[in-house]
Amino acid sequence: MPAWPIWLLSCFGIALAITAWARGYALRRNLLDQPGERRSHASATPRGGGISIVMVLLLASAWLAWRFPGQREWFGLFGAGLVLVAGIGWVDDHRPLSPWLRLLIHGLAAGTLAMGFWLEGTGPWPAMAAFVLALGLTNAWNFMDGIDGLAASQAGLVSLGLWIVLPSPWNWLAIGLAAAAAGFLPFNFPKARIFLGDVGSGALGFALAALLAAGLSKGDPSITWLLWVLPVAAFVVDTAFTLAWRILNGEPWWTPHVQHAYQRWARQIGHRRVTVFFALFTTGTVGIWLIGRGAQPPFVILVFIICYTLAGCLWGSSRRLKD
């Protein structure tokens, strides 16, 4: 294996270069996110920059499959699922598609990932967890990609934690994802010059789901499943609560909107502050996750309840903000 610095610099540099290319491509093709709908910006901004992260993940997966023959099937099926998610997102970035078609493809990708775990001999529960995580986080990251730096920074922070706790070779994929997110962020924060687009946001969620599922089935057995889902609390709560709110109010939940907590807060205090606040919250949950390894179940349950309750309260406070 290459040394960590070489691996990090390679993933970072490739993402940086492809994001620059993607911005030029989007401007030439007039692939612009206009203000409104799911976006909280005042001016049109290019989209599709997340193709850089996708390319890094695919190259990393190919390298790791070659380097670790025992996990070749897993990395192959992970790559296939990633191509499905990123591919439908790339098409959707060029021309709008039916949300039901996207959901169908996301389901196929989740099933492909689950098959990878099944063939690894992990049993039905890890495969089922992989399917649920993939379908849920793919759409959560897609929904939450609406302000400068938010989706990429969250994925980078969670990936850093995964790098520490995952065994080889999955820790190499985790830090590669973090480096790729870092290569994209200079174009997306503090002022977005390009967005991830559906090609990148869904791919980030899918990749994180794969890594979290790998942790559940192959990681440190002292880490209970409640701790594994702690780092994604901010995105899970905002996505789930907002969807539930729209459904209960009889709104078409599958259509674009600006009702997420992060969007409501961004209109009040600005994109940068919201992204930084989310980063601080997730840094805290990742820290608790790392410190809590090997903790007794009562402590883990208490921490889980506190973190998710806090996230829920912050979501509830956003409903009182004036639009």
Rank of each mutant, 00 (worst) to 15 (best):
T242H: 06
L227S: 13
L227N: 11
R193A: 01
N249L: 10
G183S: 02
A233N: 08
A181H: 00
L212R: 01
V229H: 01
A192E: 13
S217Q: 12
S201G: 14
L226R: 13
L196M: 15
K218A: 11
A192Y: 14
F241R: 14
A178Y: 00
L248Y: 12
F184I: 06
I247P: 06
P190D: 00
G205R: 06
W170I: 00
N188D: 01
G205L: 13
A209G: 09
P231W: 15
W170D: 01
F189H: 03
A233Y: 02
A209Y: 06
V237H: 07
L177A: 15
F187V: 10
V232P: 07
A179S: 07
G202L: 08
W253V: 07
F235C: 08
N249Y: 02
G215S: 14
L212A: 14
V237P: 04
G250T: 06
A234P: 03
L227Y: 13
A179Q: 05
W253T: 02
D238L: 07
T224A: 14
F184V: 08
V232W: 09
P221C: 12
V229R: 11
P221R: 07
I247T: 06
D198F: 05
K218M: 07
F235N: 03
F189S: 00
W228C: 15
L248A: 09
R246H: 09
P231K: 06
A234W: 15
G215L: 11
G183N: 05
W253D: 01
P169D: 08
G197L: 12
F184T: 04
F241E: 01
F206K: 05
L226I: 08
F195S: 07
W172S: 03
V237C: 09
F187T: 05
F189G: 00
A209E: 12
L204S: 12
I223V: 13
L212N: 01
A240R: 04
I194K: 04
W253F: 06
W172M: 09
S201P: 13
A179Y: 10
N249T: 10
W245G: 04
P190L: 02
A210L: 08
G250C: 05
R246I: 07
L211V: 09
F189W: 05
T242C: 08
N171K: 05
G197S: 13
R246E: 11
W245D: 13
F241Y: 13
L185H: 01
A179I: 02
I175W: 04
T242E: 06
A210M: 10
N171R: 13
A178K: 01
W253R: 03
L208T: 05
G202Q: 10
G183M: 03
G176S: 10
F241Q: 03
